[in-house]
Design a protein around this nucleic acid. Structure first.
Lengths: 385, 385
DNA sequence: TGCGTTTCCGAAAACGTTTTCGATAGATAA
DNA sequence: TTATCTATCGAAAACGTTTTCGGAAACGCA
């Protein structure tokens, strides 16, 4: 029988059930419960990063002193500091970010939620964010919503769990309820919207010239002599889609052109929708003479599809699109676009968020509009032929 | 923004990292570093996330009990559990990831280091990584080296500081010393290489068919009747560049074609280098009749440049490239490529790393080759005319 | 009825830092 | 010589969890 851990006696030991799969014993003499612990398994070879305590032990000082040395505190002797730094360097000490953050109550990390990192626009934004964040000493944690509202809310929760200091978000195209954002905002989490923003909540925002850009593009078409301008819009509830549509309408209005509801087609940005829209328009009794796509990718698709059908661009059909990529300039005919600057959008959003984080209390949300640029290429230059 | 403590100016202030948890600033005018002192911003209203202790107090139990309830422990009464869960939900409790990780000694986070997120290949890889990681319950932290060796080592240190459970890395093109990786590997950190791998260290790797792909492309050119094949390689020390070059040489050898050293041009993948290479080749007494670029982007550039110079593709000059993007199929003439699957590469790399993390001790590093695919388009189809 | 067994819960340690609060010594001032 | 600083350091609390250990009460069986 096993002796009591306290008195060492063995006579008055009785079994007292099982706890967590281990035999539990009871010593009547000591009135003490205890369990038999199997020998520790030394085989678990977790990578051991050197800690502040390791350094402290190595030179015989307290952990607080090591901390002071590493943090450039003034309350430390120069000799001990250099010695500590020497050892720290020798042992390749890396501070444990988790412990630091837990203690300080801040992670110096900002969370980013985007629909899809594979879209060049968002990749550009992310690059801009990372540049500014890194320079300011912040880390970046990126999540993709894959255009799903549910995934987006999960992303928010994950980032909150990670205790990010702030959130940068561009909503999925199916996000029309913003409770997940409002909740965190109410809790005091700094949040900045960019591109796909949301007007329901009072956050700082970085957006493009959605209205002016659309207006410019459509005006350009009109000045080129196009009169029957169709527009491939996005999901009906998506704010940027609405705004760009408003720009389109405003341009028509300015030039006293009638607004034909049949020329507006709401899509979800997919290629199939582009083809469907084209089919629809080409079967209309009165066909459009030009197309404005709210998303640059659809513009490319339109060109490909029109070429397939042997419809001449820009003569029979003009094309312009919002957004720009290298491909737009290389395709034949090259695509007239309203060029945007994703990297700059990213930079501005990150900068705003960091400002919000630092000036938590005094920060007043505002909206910044990043200027775009009309780039006229062949797909809309009717006079070109 | 905060004014400079010396000159009071506000225009030339930039953020310059963190010191002791305080934002560090830099005044370009005064060439002066300084930090914001807390009294400047007294209104910091730290967001208070509800903790386990809050819940415990709310129902009058101990924190341990709450923890048990949240972790599906069996050692808890069903009634108390449901009550605790109810309150937790009511208070929108989110576990503190930092505290959890610190306690458990693992972060369930994997670090990713890539040269540039804006390159579609890497964006695809990242998407693949995130898919697998998310499904396995891991978070992903992405760093960009911007093709700089120094930044890359800083990235490694930052991720180690964050105590990631493992590392996924594709080296910068100027990384020829791998001490930063070796050091962490020796400390026991699981590391998996992908694409731009390194043979000096014994890690698991996920690579493309660099040799076979190049061989296939060059063989295709030969079968099309091209005989004087130039190759635009990458940096001379970059492993994937060497391997692809080897594939090129092997193909020439198989068909008894002479290897002309003048036809090999080492570049750093930049557009200027593409132009320089072309200039060089076109001024040779014996010009090449076709070009194989190791990087697909350079292939696009070659096509544009050859069109500028009115050189007929594929008749006067054939072009093939390693890698693929949408643009390669849309450009005129479309570009023959060896298509790769970045998403799958990412999936495999993440999968391998997680396996390595879980089976820490027993994992044996191996190399996985992801198959690519020859896609023949117009830029190399001489018989086409 | 009594004893051994379960069930359920609280106290406390641990994770690695930072930070507050003293404490000690030597140095300086009175 | 005594009182007061100052420089330097250690002890301990705190951050929010998980987990181990021990204990009390309820339970089951003879």
């Amino acid at each position: 029988m096993t002796p009591c851990v306290k008195c060492g006696g063995v006579e008055n030991i009785v079994r007292a059930g099982f706890v967590r799969g281990k035999q539990r014993l009871y010593c009547k003499d000591c009135n003490l419960y205890f369990t038999i612990t199997p020998e520790n398994h030394p085989s678990s070879k977790k990578p051991h990063q050197t800690t502040i305590v390791d350094i402290a032990r190595a030179i015989g000082v307290s952990p607080s002193t090591v901390s002071r040395a590493l943090n450039n505190s003034t309350e430390i002797n120069d000799n001990t500091r250099t010695e500590i730094l020497r050892i720290a360097n020798e042992l390749d000490y890396r501070p444990n970010f988790l412990a630091q953050s837990l203690n300080r109550g801040e992670t110096h990390t900002i969370g980013v939620i985007i629909p899809d990192i594979q879209r060049p626009f968002f990749a550009g934004v992310v690059a801009g964010i990372q540049k500014v964040a890194t320079e300011a000493g912040y880390r970046v944690m990126i999540c993709q919503s894959n255009e799903s509202h549910h995934t987006e809310t999960l992303n928010v929760q994950a980032l909150v769990t990670s205790r990010v200091d702030g959130l940068l978000i561009s909503h999925s195209k199916e996000t029309f309820s913003f409770e997940h954002v409002k909740l965190q905002l109410k809790k005091g989490l700094p949040i900045v919207h960019f591109d796909r923003v949301c007007n329901e909540v009072d956050t700082a925002k970085v957006i493009q010239e959605d209205f002016a850009g659309s207006f410019t593009l459509v005006e350009h078409l009109i000045l080129q002599g196009y009169r029957k301008i169709a527009v491939l819009a996005g999901p009906q509830d998506l704010l940027i889609s609405q705004t760009r549509l408003d720009g389109y309408k405003a341009a028509l209005e300015k030039y006293d052109l009638p607004m034909n509801e049949q020329f507006i087609y709401y899509s979800n940005f997919s290629q199939e929708d582009s083809v469907k829209a084209l089919d629809y328009w080409l079967n209309l009794p009165e066909k459009p003479d030009s197309i404005f796509t709210i998303h640059y990718g659809n513009g490319i698709e339109m060109i490909m599809e029109l070429k397939n059908r042997n419809i001449q661009i820009p003569n029979e059909m003009g094309i312009v699109a919002f957004g720009d990529e290298l491909i737009a300039s290389l395709i034949e005919p090259s695509l007239t676009v309203f060029h945007q600057f994703p990297f700059i959008i990213g930079e501005n959003a990150a900068s705003m968020l960091i400002e919000n984080i630092i000036n938590q209390g005094s920060f007043v949300p505002h909206t910044k509009v990043i200027k775009g640029e009309l780039i006229i290429r062949k797909s809309s230059q009717r006079s070109y032929t």
